[in-house]
Design a protein around this nucleic acid. Sequence first.
DNA 1: CGGCGTATTGACCACCCTCAACTGACGTGG
DNA 2: CCACGTCAGTTGAGGGTGGTCAATACGCCG
Lengths: 239, 239
Amino acid sequence: MSLQRSCAVCAVRASALCCTLPKEQLSRLNRITYQRRYDAGQFIMGTGQQQDWVATVLSGVVKLTKTMADGRQQIVGLLFAADFLGRPFASGSPYEAEAATAVELCCLERQSFEDLMLHHPDMRQLFLERTLNEVDAAREWMLLLGRKTAEEKVASLLLLMAQRVRSATADGSAPSPGLHCELPLSRTEMAEYLGLRVETVSRQIGRLRDAGVIDTENGRAIIVRDIGRLARTAAKEEG
Amino acid sequence: MSLQRSCAVCAVRASALCCTLPKEQLSRLNRITYQRRYDAGQFIMGTGQQQDWVATVLSGVVKLTKTMADGRQQIVGLLFAADFLGRPFASGSPYEAEAATAVELCCLERQSFEDLMLHHPDMRQLFLERTLNEVDAAREWMLLLGRKTAEEKVASLLLLMAQRVRSATADGSAPSPGLHCELPLSRTEMAEYLGLRVETVSRQIGRLRDAGVIDTENGRAIIVRDIGRLARTAAKEEG
DNA sequence: CGGCGTATTGACCACCCTCAACTGACGTGG
DNA sequence: CCACGTCAGTTGAGGGTGGTCAATACGCCG
């Protein structure tokens, strides 16, 4: 469960919260952090129970979900590499975290993290700004959930994923024939994120494929053929 | 538009962000803040444009909205007395703020606010914690928007309002016959908050009234007759 | 009284949900 | 090697919730 690697060669060192720490601090950071791996589908942290550690996502995708008593579930956020996971300044998390794909985390005790923030203004500042961005993202998604049609919802999600993947794989190789994109979510998870049912997601993806906007490969991959049309479908203006 | 009052007698002094400032700072704070009043329906701040000030809500209710190109609108947050309005560390706000009722704000320049946070760790900390709470609240609302039925949505909102009002008016007088609650939102605004249409909100309120859970008075007031049943209606478990 | 804006009510129907069957990929075991 | 089970995804038929459009009621104010 727990392995060791050096902060100096960390893949997300440049963009995670700890990018604000000076090099001299890295060896100390290395000592107080530890890594964890999860398989797709595994539970990471939950509501209710005491939660005494936080983490940075090293690789993979984490989904944050909220569940009602009768089982209805809503994904309320996705975390990618370099994103922060956990709820400082509270004893528990108000939602559950689960591995959507295989996930590597770089963990540390919540108390250590709070101490780090106390002594490193830059890091505290970055954390604050990222939290503000999370508020913005959550509210953007509220607009999607409350006002968009199924077609717009699906297009919006695919667009988001395509952008996420494009920025992640900064290869620059063969960009023209279509943007290839391996979705980190199953149809069921897409539905849970969009406030839809699986069948509706499947049908809308089918429609986008028939319209030539995207192609689907076996499994979870899609190829964006016409990103402009995808973007227009994501917020159709009455036409 | 701009009037002066002393921080020392401020109504939200005990709960706003500035409650973390020592008394010695109040006269200085008094000098750099100014007040503004808005009538119900007035625009406060918007997307796109440069936004160089932030504020604390002194009284009234502010709604934060997002609008799509074709006019579809979603309320993404409500601010009550002592809540903070504005988006520090960014040049503009990603959503519009509008007065839902008559509103009084205590404003200061964004730069001054950022400076204050820089020099007052307690205030910075409180701001961070409140921002984290905003994330939680937004995600809670995502669950409502994505998964709840119209009946549950309306009940959830009425419950929220009843609790807000109960805590605000800590009178303790005549609690038994029914919790009186003056809604700060029109039916249209309730619909915009819940991801519904006005007609649906109106019908669901009618059903709750017929069921004896609430009573309605002329205008926007409601009386909660059975808060337990209202809470159960807000998250029905398959019954 | 008439005009205006908000709330309510009614009739209709479309979008999405529900339930069900089917397909294809994958793994296991005979 | 194929039969079989499983699981994710797809497709189809039908129904219900909530949207749409229109008329009416109500409160407010000149």
